[in-house]
């Protein structure tokens, strides 16, 4: 996958983090079968430079924090169960700002994953059909 902003390592961390946050199980596809990482990379490219740097730094923080807080390894070295324990712990952080930043990261992962066409379709939203109807109406009625 060609990436605009993320390094391969950062992309791998985001995929791992997203797997932890959305915890896909059948009928939902695994993160690697979606375009969540590609979207996140494109989204980063549209952010102001400072926000972009901050988001990339947060990925590294997410990777290292489990090791530094007694979960036995970096994020990507942990199995999902252990990663989930770490996430629960972070969500209960006593500092409100930490919880707020974590919520931002979680929301980004959720948007990236659930915005995938295949995931949307499994939950009943057919983006392509919606778009097609729009095109047909515009053509039939001369809408702009």
């Amino acid at each position: 996958m060609e990436l605009r902003v993320l390094s391969a390592r950062e992309a791998s961390i985001f995929a791992c983090l997203t797997d932890t946050v959305v915890a896909p199980e059948p009928i939902l596809p695994p993160v690697r079968e979606t375009d969540a990482v590609r979207f996140f990379d494109e989204w980063l490219s549209l952010l102001p430079p400072l926000n972009r740097r901050a988001m990339r730094a947060l990925l590294l923080v997410a990777e290292m924090t489990p090791l530094l807080t007694g979960f036995g390894g970096r994020l990507r070295r942990l199995d999902r169960g252990r990663r989930t324990e770490w996430l629960r712990s972070a969500e209960r952080a006593p500092v409100p700002q930490v919880r707020m930043v974590l919520k931002l990261v979680e929301s980004t992962s959720q948007l990236a994953y659930y915005g995938n066409d295949g995931v949307l379709m499994r939950l009943g939203y057919d983006a392509e059909a919606n778009l097609r109807r729009g095109r047909e109406l515009r053509a039939a009625e001369g809408r702009p």
Binding site: V21, L28, Y114, V119, G124
Partner: peptide, 24 residues
């Protein structure tokens, strides 16, 4: 749609997934 809803729904992990599967 689901991706918009996913950002605003509470929880993460398994509970969020269960909620999203109930999206309809």
């Amino acid at each position: 749609p689901p991706d918009y809803a996913a950002m605003s729904f509470p929880f993460s992990g398994e509970r969020h997934r269960e909620l999203m599967l109930s999206y309809p």
